[in-house]
Every structure is written in structure tokens, then in C-alpha cells.
Design a protein around this nucleic acid. Structure first.
Lengths: 166, 166
DNA sequence: CGATTGGTTCTGATTTAACCGAACTAATCG
DNA sequence: CGATTAGTTCGGTTAAATCAGAACCAATCG
């Protein structure tokens, strides 16, 4: 039972690690660290634990920890009479990646609008030969989608903020 | 005027290229090819054009074109009495990347559900010491978000399918 | 003080992807 | 047939990222 929970945990670290690695374009070990911390909960994890459980060298773990910390993705706390640091994912790590999603979509939106303007100009220029070079409908639909997705994620952000305050 | 349209085009190829490169995890030149084709519209572009306009070697262009073609991201047509191929983005290139988004979200959904189950099990195990290790609320909210985003993108897909048929 | 713990920093080694050049092929033209 | 066009394939180079090992540092313990 505890045995099977532990192996579930390892599988999840792996799966979540791969996900984070690709979604956030992050080094493999860095992503594993985040996954580990996420699945380790409030108790946090020490440097040593990470080294042994993730089977990585001290230098690798150290480098990534400093990186993640300065990127405010993780925090640490200490315990009285204990030199070790206990790392946990920072409360706004989630907020941060949500903000990145939002900015990503805004960026896409701006580009789609620019492309539409460009295509429009081209179509006007060449309508002489009868056939226009571009369809614009897709962009309109895509903008609707971006709008809906953005709304959904903003809603999520609101919920999280509300919970943090309480 | 035509001058400024051309430079707008180059800027857009660059911006769109970078976007595609990062969103679809694609090699730089491959992404530029797609961007170029998208901004070149129905008339298509030839091998030579890509080589000179993207300032890449024939080998690079050749390799990426075969890749993109076998991945069904691009198509080509020919003109009578002309050995050149005219490449265009395939009509379902968009559908394909939409499908990838959908699958991506389904995947995330499955992982979040697994994590919730794991955290739940942990919380039950240790509630003895009073404090539970995990909050589960975030996952619930995130699942709602995934649901909404998925709905939005499915709607987009429906629209596109409807347009293709007509 | 000397030893241990907890961690950092620096210097490669390894890996991998992306790209290019050059030699090559295959079809068409004159 | 020889030359040109259109494109492919192969081998090698370069650049960047990631990780590990070893030496190092700084704080604490006995």
C-alpha cells in the first residue's frame, strides 16, 4: 500500500516532469525538480533528497535550484536547529505560468491581426486578376477562439487570487 | 507601397516563424518555410524561391520540405510545362495543429486527475498528524479551465470543418 | 582545532540538432 | 549526346544545452 503509493509517485514525477519539460521548455532535471516538489506537498524536500531521489549530481541540482529560485518558481524554509533548506513550489509559480499563457495568447492575437491586415492589403492590390490570394475567415474564427480561451484562463486566475487572499 | 508591403511581409515571416518555431517545436528554417507559405497564399512558392528568400542552402530546404510534406503540413501542385513544384500549406495543416492542441489538453487533464487521486490518497494516509500535505482545489479549477478551453477549440474545429465542406 | 555537513563553482565531456557544401541523380532541352 | 534545371543525399562542422566530477567554501559540531 505505502509501497504502491511510492511507485505511483515515481510514475507521476516522470509523467509530470515530461509535461513540464515540454510545456515550459525547461531542462529535464529542472522539470523533475518541480514535479518532485509538486508531488511532495507542503513538507518540502531537501537538497540531498533531490540528489538521491532524482539520481542527479549535486552540481546539477544546485544549479537548477538557484535558477528556479531566482525565477521565483520555488521557495524554501528552514527548521530551527537544522541547517538544511526545505524547498517547496512557490505559491505564485502557478500564477506565473498562467500569466505566461495569457501573454502567449495576447501575442498570438496581435500577430493574427497583423497578418489579416497584410493579407487584406494583398487581396486589394491584386483583385485585378480576379482571384484573391487569401482567405481571411480562419483568422476571424481563430480570434474568437483566443478570446474564449483567454476568458477561461482569466477566470481561473481570478479564482486562484480569491483563494490566496482567503 | 509595394515596397512597404514587401518589408511588412518579411517582418511577418520573421514574427510568425518565431511563433511557429516555439509553439510547434520545429526547426527554425522549417518554421520559416511554413510562415513563408502562409504569407504567400494560394499561388504557392517554389524550391528556388525558398532557397533565395530564406537564405538557406538547398540541402536544408530540401530536407525540411520532404519532412513537412510527409507530415502533411504542406502540399504541392505543378503547372503544365513547368517542372517546378509549387508548395502551399496543406488545407488540414491547421486542423492538424488544432488536433494536437486538443490532444495536449486531454493529456493534461488525465495527468491532473491522476495527481488528484495520488494527493487524495496521501492526505488520507497522513491525516493522523492533523495537517494534510496537499490542497486539491487548484486541480478542480484547472480542470474546469481545460474543459472550457477544449470546448472553445472544438467549436473552432467545427467551424473550419463546416467551411471546408462548403 | 579538525572533521563533518550542506552546498557552490568551475571546468570539461557528452549529446544532439541544425545547417551547409559538394557530389550526385534524374528529367528535360536543344 | 551534352548541357541545364531541379532537387536529393551524405558527411562533416558548429553551436548550444545539459550534466557530472572534483575542488572548493562556509558553518557547525565535538
Amino acid at each position: 500500500m505505502d509501497q504502491s503509493l511510492a511507485s505511483t509517485k515515481n510514475e507521476l514525477i516522470e509523467k509530470l516532469g515530461v509535461l513540464i519539460e515540454s510545456k515550459e521548455q525547461m531542462a529535464s532535471v529542472a522539470a523533475r525538480i518541480l514535479a518532485y516538489l509538486i508531488l511532495n506537498g507542503k513538507k518540502g524536500a531537501t537538497f540531498e533528497q533531490l540528489v538521491t531521489d532524482l539520481c542527479a549530481s549535486k552540481s546539477t541540482i544546485s544549479t537548477h535550484l538557484t535558477h528556479l529560485h531566482s525565477a521565483k518558481r520555488i521557495n524554501y524554509h528552514t527548521k530551527l536547529g537544522d541547517r538544511k533548506k526545505y524547498y517547496v513550489i512557490s505559491p505564485d509559480s502557478i500564477i506565473q505560468s498562467i500569466d505566461e499563457m495569457i501573454e502567449g495568447w495576447n501575442h498570438q492575437k496581435r500577430i493574427h491581426i497583423e497578418i489579416m491586415a497584410y493579407k487584406d492589403a494583398c487581396n486589394c492590390n491584386r483583385n485585378n486578376d480576379g482571384v484573391s490570394d487569401f482567405d481571411l475567415e480562419f483568422h476571424k474564427d481563430y480570434l474568437v477562439f483566443i478570446e474564449e480561451a483567454s476568458t477561461a484562463i482569466l477566470k481561473l486566475k481570478e479564482k486562484l487570487n480569491a483563494r490566496i487572499k482567503s
